[in-house]
Amino acid sequence: MSGVHTASAFVFALIFYGVFITTEAQTSTPSPGTIPCALRSNTSCKECLENVTCLWCTPTKQCLDYPVRNILPPSTVCPLNDARWGLCWVNFQILIITMSVVGGVFIIGILVCCFCCCKCERIGNKKEDAKMERQTRARKNRQKAKTTEMQMRHDEIRQKYGIAKENPYARMDDH
């Protein structure tokens, strides 16, 4: 089960890394009307988070530049439970737990679907194998009936012309 958590954490990290690369690209070319995050301290969370590069720390009421070199802000900057980014009502700790659960459910769902598809395919193959076996048996029975019918016809022709054999293993020219 730890593999599922590791995989979901990896997916979560990739998503956030992509977001932060985009954020870092935006910070390298600041627009002329943006106010630096440090000047928004001691205001409100909503004002701080108007700039996507800012991080709000609830207990200290500080608006900080998001540490883009890290995927998650270190606890020295602000504890995960008190850090807000993007929305004031979502903290990182709940976001990580939620993403892990959603990722785990998603991976388990994919594995269940793969298992069911493989199982259905095996059942389908068994049905196809049984059908082929029935067809083969029917073909052999028809062939056997035709062979018997042809043998009877040949025996009738031999009887008609008087070349019937008493011993089926005797040569024809012995008569």
Rank of each mutant, 00 (worst) to 15 (best):
R84W: 08
Q26S: 14
W85H: 12
L111R: 13
M150P: 00
L39C: 01
F10E: 01
F16T: 13
E47D: 11
F12L: 10
K160M: 05
K61L: 12
Q93T: 09
N91D: 13
D174H: 11
I71W: 07
C116P: 00
K160P: 00
A25K: 03
G124H: 14
I157N: 02
P79I: 06
P74A: 06
Q93N: 03
T136N: 11
G109L: 02
G162K: 13
I21Q: 00
Y66E: 13
G86C: 14
S100D: 11
N141C: 15
T29E: 08
P36C: 05
P67I: 01
L87P: 06
E133G: 05
T29Q: 13
F115T: 02
G162F: 09
K46H: 15
V11F: 11
A138I: 03
E50L: 07
A170S: 05
G109Q: 02
P59A: 04
L111H: 12
K131Q: 15
F10G: 02
L80H: 07
D173W: 14
K127V: 07
S100F: 11
V19Y: 08
N81Q: 10
D129C: 12
I163G: 01
N91C: 14
R158Q: 06
F106M: 04
Y169H: 08
F92W: 12
Q159Y: 06
F20P: 02
F16P: 15
A145S: 12
G18F: 07
M132N: 14
L55E: 07
N125C: 02
S75Y: 12
T136I: 09
Q151F: 09
T147S: 09
S75C: 11
S31P: 00
S44Y: 03
V11H: 01
R137W: 00
D65T: 03
T43C: 01
I15R: 11
L14G: 15
D65V: 03
S100P: 02
K160D: 01
K131W: 15
L49H: 13
K61H: 14
R134N: 10
T22M: 13
V90W: 09
K146Y: 03
Q26W: 15
A164D: 03
A13F: 10
I108V: 12
P168Y: 15
V90C: 04
K160S: 04
D129F: 11
C63A: 04
W89E: 09
I163L: 01
Y66S: 12
E121W: 14
C117L: 15
L39Q: 07
V77Y: 14
T136S: 08
L55W: 10
R69G: 01
K140F: 05
L80M: 04
E149L: 14
P30K: 00
S8Q: 07
V101S: 13
R40S: 00
N81D: 07
C88F: 05
V11K: 02
V105I: 12
L80Y: 05
A138Q: 05
V52R: 12
E149Y: 07
Q62R: 15
K46N: 13
C88Y: 03
T147H: 14
F115I: 02
S100L: 15
K146F: 05
